[in-house]
Design a protein around this nucleic acid. Structure first.
Length: 521
RNA sequence: GGCCCCGUCGUCUAGAGGUCUAGGACACGGCCCUUUCAAGGCCGCGACACGGGUUCGAAUCCCGUCGGGGUCACCA
């Protein structure tokens, strides 16, 4: 039997990180077993602008490299893959349920149902619909309709016995049928609801394993009821623990961003990303730009592999030591048996540390390609000429491990700014400490400047040799000059290695910046 | 509130009765390296929710308590 799984987002306009974790587990399980992964669109609720709300989700999947074999945009033999296009099919299934006695027409108003519910609550018993407005025959239907009532279709749920099934993660599950309501499966206007649609689709698409978040655990009995009523063979179920909020246990939600921002680590990751987004002129409302949404990571310049590696560890582990997995390793090693039952909270700082590691391993060429667009969007370089690419590549090489995400290249924008501007914006405290205060600084800097001006080679190694000669000739410690030069040339106390910095700047700019600094002393 | 689920360092986790004075990772603190920063190296801090059983022996099994969470739609 070929394993077939699905992820079924509704078009909400964004891709939630918890959703990705669920999708990832589906994807890994499927790839591990050599099956097919289907991306179905749950849009029964007839939203407007489905295409628009769907685009970011599909884009996110593609960016992450979670490919699907059938579904939205790619099609396949078991379509359509949009629930909105299967209205007739669901109605047919609903009719079949009525015929077999698993569903009935009901004419209660919303208020009447609410009234029964309140009464039950008042008497402290659990609510079960009385079926007072149930229409068992066509004649009764006609009578209710003559009163002007509108009929919906409800499940004719069992009122005794228990629903039992085995969940791949939670083990044997048993729920009394009496706890289940006569859920509505079709509205008065003929449109069908999620549970019916979902069960029918799983059948039509030959889904063998329903792997989803545990919020759906309580939906399972009613879906089993529908499936059995329709004579379908049941899929295997696996209910994953949900992804919890940073430092908490409640479900991760994009709306609670304000609360998460009180968590210092979350805040740090958010602000780091925010600064980059601002610099490239991105619209950053908390609604769309937010570490709970995958798009955040793409905008800031994270690596998809790092994100997936972090996410696979949220509720799954191989052993007591292994933390890094390539995609192939993940696929090979993943198993549902090692999925945890307890929710795992989302820790953006740990995600960031995976990002750091993956970034370190990335070849300079690839980092350069990732960084270039940020410099372009920030208006610092023109679109990729050979010279620009070469310069950025040299910067990326000099930056080494300092670039944690691609957008970090913007921290080094000073290389593209006018010399005077950089010097004039020098950090006052640093300028004071390294240039003004030490009595010998100005003199040494002037002499060093002259050496630079007459240097014949301006690569990092030659500059280091030049520095060594200078230090020896003057009989000073390297620390007496090197900090002064750094500040004179960058206005800052921190940055790349000094010789790389000078080489990157070139002789002309290096000397110009020193001159400008000397003027300000 | 009913029903259900979960409970090992702050966080992600290893742990299926003795190998646990509970292991790894992130974060945090300290030291070292060092032209700054980053990286790296070393060290440290830090958990079996609690109470009863069962057993020669329990983080592991059972019961209870407490705590946290999910879910109770003509949403998906």
């Amino acid at each position: 039997m070929t394993v077939r799984t699905r992820f079924a987002p509704s078009p909400t306009g964004y891709l939630h990180i918890g959703g990705v974790r669920t999708a990832l587990f589906n994807w890994l399980f499927t790839r591990h077993h050599g099956g097919q992964f289907i991306l179905r669109i749950d849009d029964t609720d007839q939203q407007r602008n489905v295409a628009e709300a769907l685009a970011p989700i599909l884009h996110g999947f593609r960016w992450l490299g979670l490919n699907w074999d059938e579904g939205a945009e790619v099609g396949g033999p078991h379509g359509p893959y949009h629930q909105s296009q299967k209205t007739a099919r669901y109605q047919e299934a609903a009719r079949q349920l009525v015929e077999c006695g698993f569903a009935y027409y009901d004419y209660a108003t919303t208020e009447e149902i609410a009234g029964e519910r309140e009464a039950a609550e008042k008497e402290k018993r659990s609510f079960v619909y009385s079926r007072r407005w149930m229409a068992a025959t066509p004649a009764e239907r006609a009578r209710f309709e003559a009163e002007g009532r509108k009929g919906v279709l409800r499940l004719n749920m069992f009122r005794e016995g228990a629903c039992r099934f085995t969940d791949l993660i939670r083990g044997d599950v048993s729920v009394d049928w009496a706890r289940e309501q006569d859920h509505v499966i079709q509205r008065a206007d003929g449109t069908c609801l999620y549970h019916l649609a979902s069960v029918v689709d799983d059948e039509d698409m030959k889904i063998t394993h329903v792997i989803r978040s545990e919020e759906h655990l309580s939906n399972t009995p009613r879906q089993i009821f529908i499936a059995q009523g329709l004579g379908y063979e049941l899929p295997q179920y696996a209910h994953l623990p949900y992804v919890a909020a940073p430092g908490g246990k409640e479900k991760l939600s994009k709306r609670k961003i304000a609360q998460y921002l009180k968590n210092p680590e979350f805040k740090k990751v958010y602000e780091h990303g925010h600064a980059i987004a601002e610099a490239v002129g991105l619209h950053t409302s908390a609604d769309t730009f937010n570490p709970v949404i995958v798009d955040f990571y793409e905008q800031v310049g994270y690596l998809p592999d790092a994100i997936l590696n972090y996410l696979v560890l949220l509720g799954w582990s191989l052993d007591d030591k292994t933390e890094f997995f390539s995609r192939d390793e993940m696929i090979r090693l993943f198993s549902m048996e090692r999925v945890n039952k307890a929710p795992a909270s989302f820790d953006p700082k740990k995600l960031f540390s995976f990002q750091e590691r993956y970034m370190m391993q990335l070849p300079v060429e690839e980092k350069t390609a990732m960084c270039l667009p940020y410099l372009q969007k920030a208006g610092l370089v023109a679109a990729g000429s050979v010279e620009v690419t070469a310069k950025v590549k040299a910067m990326v090489a000099a930056a080494g491990d300092r670039l944690k995400v691609a957008g970090d290249i913007l921290e080094y924008r000073d290389f593209f700014l006018p010399d005077d501007q950089v010097v004039d914006n020098a950090d006052p405290g640093t300028f004071e400490k390294r240039l003004k205060k030490p009595p010998e600084a100005a003199g040494l800097l002037r002499k060093f400047r002259d050496r630079l001006a007459s240097a014949t080679a301006f690569d990092a190694a030659s500059l280091e040799a030049l520095m060594n000669d200078f230090v020896q000739a003057e009989g000073i410690q390297v620390g007496q000059i090197i900090h002064a030069v750094r500040v004179a040339v960058t206005g800052k106390a921190v940055g790349f290695g000094l010789f790389e910095t000078l080489a990157l700047l070139g002789k002309e700019h290096s000397v110009a910046r020193i001159d400008r600094s000397l003027e300000r002393l």
